[in-house]
Write a protein that binds this DNA or RNA. Structure first.
Lengths: 247, 247
DNA sequence: GCCATGCCAAATGTGCACATTTTTATAAAG
DNA sequence: CTTTATAAAAATGTGCACATTTGGCATGGC
């Protein structure tokens, strides 16, 4: 009697790790794309309804995102999209700057022609996107340049740390808008590569530092601040065509 | 089967966030102390029985530790204490080395007498512990020195990253045993402070680098490798005096 | 003797039914 | 009209009952 089956009549405890991952990726993607405005409440029941999964599954995903510090979890009060302070953003940029100084210091000891060649090729891509006027590609490639630098070291811990920093700064673009007007100047990236080729640590670090300070100086507060109330259904509209109840 | 301790029909959903934290801290502490050998299986039912809480609570904690990469989670097969490779350990040390190079680069721009004074005081503590022969204090203070360095920058992201690295290397002590014979030489720490006082970036980084390479060279494989099967009850014996079934 | 196969106990994964807490709506008082 | 108190509604947190999967063990065939 107590065995209430699901609507699809199949098993209830059916293991489906892919479903977890799909929901996680969907929400994470929405966060990184900036579709979810800062301060938006992410309640479990509506999300379960939208994605057509149980509430527990949504719950697990939200708590995971909270553990990764991508969502702000408050006990008994659910999940919200974090509203980073200007100091928070500066902190992330500074961390990136400090990290890259260390990376460059280590990198000059291991530069070889292949690396310089790869970086030069990347610079060409960046210039192509810039002259083409493709803003989206420019932003993407600009971030990828720094990823290339750290991955040249082949250290998983450092790569993960940088990925964490970049993903966090992505979210921040929706509040403060850095570098939408003019992204990382390709020339500055080129100067870093040039210093690397010359094995000049001090110059590489100095250029990198100026580069980051340049970007940081463009940060400014964008205080339209829609405090809450965003239509989640609209945000996740095209993500999952699963049926949901009549609105 | 293990009789669920809490069967009082009245308050089932009683909120108790402190209980979560207690279990989390207990397992984390056991991990950091090296009481849990690498490769040990952490099954949910016995842990629930030991701590006297429901299985779901254990479950949540284990998954949290898995998300923090302190436990290795395999779908449908539970949690195990990770068995880090020698390359993993080297990776952590290298990351610390690279990070500290960046930290020192940034730090020489903001050194003041107060900082030098604090670091000097710390060095005195280290020396005292060393001459006293207090090995535990020496290890602790030796790690704390590097924490002091990064915290001098006042950047939360960087501090968190270093804490992550340190906690991971703590776990690794149980497999490879670095620096138990002779921990970070105080003289090397002193040389770093001296270079900072002189505002000599290159020297600070060089000394720091040599320091880390020195420690890394002491790593060696300790392959006794008890493959599994550790008595969890004994490990968590003194942690939680809560009543459990037999005993 | 050794590998393959089937069965059974144990462990993990998940939906659901509550309890608890928070938030919203409504009514009353100043 | 604003503010406060109270009740209703919604959302979050948790234990439990299953389903599913895994691992071990015995049996049978080569």
């Amino acid at each position: 009697m107590a065995t209430q089956r699901r609507r699809n009549g199949k098993g209830i405890g059916k293991a489906n790790p892919a479903e977890d991952e799909a929901v996680y990726q969907a929400i994470l993607h929405a966060l990184l794309e900036g579709k979810l405005k800062a301060g938006t409440k992410l309640a479990e029941p509506p999300l379960a309804d939208i994605f057509g999964v149980s509430r527990e599954r949504i719950r697990k995903v939200l708590h995971r995102l909270g553990a990764e510090r991508r969502l702000e979890m408050i006990p008994n009060r659910g999940a919200r999209v974090p509203r980073p302070t200007l100091d928070d953003v500066r902190s992330v940029y500074e961390a990136h700057r400090v990290l890259e100084a260390g990376v460059l210091t280590q990198l000059v000891r291991h530069v070889d022609d292949a690396l310089i060649e790869r970086l030069t090729a990347h610079l060409a891509e960046e210039r192509a996107a810039a002259t083409r006027g493709d803003r989206a590609a420019s932003v993407r490639l600009s971030g990828a340049f720094h990823v290339h630098l750290v991955e040249a070291l082949g250290n998983a811990e450092l790569s993960r740390f940088l990925a964490d920093l970049l993903s966090r700064s992505s979210v921040m673009v929706s509040v403060y808008e850095p570098a939408t007007d003019s992204i990382c100047a390709v020339d500055e990236h080129g100067a870093i590569v040039e210093a690397l080729r010359a094995r000049d640590v001090a110059r590489a670090i100095a250029v990198s530092r100026e580069h980051f300070l340049h970007v940081e100086s463009r940060l400014h507060l964008d205080d339209d601040a829609a405090p809450a109330g965003q239509d989640l259904t609209a945000v996740f509209a095209a993500v999952k065509p699963k049926r949901r109840k009549g609105r």
